[in-house]
Amino acid sequence: MDPISAAIVSSAAALSQLQFSQQVGYAVLRKAMDAEAASAAALLQTIPQPPPPINATGGLVDTYA
């Protein structure tokens, strides 16, 4: 095999390996982001809801001047 053909084959193999590595990296990143989203959703569910206002003039604190 001449040097040019060997270089082309070597470059193609390196590119294929790089593409595979990137695909694996993206899959891991996507999995981590999904886990973070689920974790954030669970944390948001633990926040207590504020009580409804008693009346429309100020809720629990009257703000008359």
Rank of each mutant, 00 (worst) to 15 (best):
Met1Asp: 07
Met1Ser: 15
Met1Lys: 10
Met1Leu: 14
Met1Arg: 14
Asp2His: 12
Pro3Ile: 04
Pro3Trp: 04
Pro3Lys: 09
Pro3Met: 05
Ser5Glu: 10
Ser5Trp: 06
Ser5Cys: 05
Ala6His: 06
Ala6Asn: 11
Ala7Val: 05
Ala7Gly: 08
Ile8Ser: 03
Ile8Met: 07
Ile8Pro: 02
Ile8Glu: 09
Val9Cys: 03
Val9Glu: 06
Ser10Thr: 09
Ser10Arg: 08
Ser10Gln: 05
Ser10His: 05
Ser10Cys: 04
Ser11Trp: 05
Ala12Ile: 07
Ala12Gly: 03
Ala12Val: 09
Ala12Glu: 07
Ala13Leu: 00
Ala13Asn: 04
Ala13Met: 05
Ala14Leu: 01
Ala14Thr: 01
Ala14Pro: 00
Ala14Glu: 03
Leu15Phe: 10
Ser16Met: 11
Ser16Arg: 11
Ser16Thr: 15
Gln17Gly: 02
Gln17Ile: 04
Gln17Lys: 11
Gln17Asn: 08
Leu18Cys: 08
Leu18Val: 05
Leu18Trp: 11
Leu18Arg: 14
Gln19Leu: 02
Gln19Val: 13
Gln19Trp: 05
Phe20Asn: 11
Phe20Tyr: 15
Ser21Lys: 07
Gln22Gly: 10
Gln22Pro: 10
Gln22Ser: 12
Gln23Thr: 02
Gln23Asp: 11
Val24Asp: 13
Gly25Asp: 12
Tyr26Ala: 04
Tyr26Trp: 01
Tyr26Thr: 03
Tyr26Val: 06
Ala27Gly: 02
Val28Ala: 13
Val28Leu: 12
Val28Glu: 02
Arg30Trp: 04
Arg30Ala: 12
Arg30Ser: 11
Arg30Asn: 13
Arg30Asp: 12
Lys31Asn: 12
Lys31Met: 07
Ala32Ile: 08
Met33Cys: 05
Met33Tyr: 14
Asp34Val: 00
Asp34Trp: 09
Ala35Cys: 01
Ala35Phe: 10
Ala35Ile: 09
Ala35Val: 08
Glu36Arg: 09
Glu36Ala: 14
Ala37Lys: 02
Ala37Glu: 13
Ala38Glu: 15
Ser39Met: 06
Ser39Pro: 01
Ser39Ile: 00
Ser39Cys: 06
Ala40Gly: 05
Ala40Met: 09
Ala40Glu: 15
Ala40His: 10
Ala40Cys: 06
Ala40Arg: 10
Ala41Trp: 11
Ala41Leu: 12
Ala41Asn: 15
Ala42Phe: 04
Leu43Asp: 10
Leu43Gln: 13
Leu43Tyr: 09
Leu44His: 04
Gln45Glu: 13
Gln45Val: 07
Gln45Leu: 06
Gln45Asp: 11
Thr46Tyr: 07
Ile47Asp: 06
Pro48Ala: 03
Pro48Lys: 01
Pro48Gly: 03
Pro48Met: 01
Pro48Asn: 03
Gln49Ser: 15
Gln49Ala: 11
Gln49Ile: 08
Gln49Met: 13
Pro50Tyr: 00
Pro51Asp: 12
Pro51Ser: 12
Pro51Ala: 10
Pro52Thr: 09
Pro52Arg: 00
Pro53Cys: 07
Pro53His: 02
Pro53Ala: 14
Ile54Asn: 00
Ile54Cys: 03
Asn55Phe: 06
Asn55Thr: 07
Asn55Tyr: 04
Ala56Glu: 02
Ala56His: 07
Gly58Gln: 08
Gly58Glu: 00
Gly59Asp: 14
Gly59Tyr: 12
Gly59Arg: 15
Gly59Asn: 13
Leu60Asn: 11
Leu60His: 01
Val61Trp: 08
Val61Gln: 14
Asp62Lys: 05
Asp62Glu: 08
Asp62His: 00
Thr63Lys: 10
Thr63Trp: 03
Ala65Ile: 15
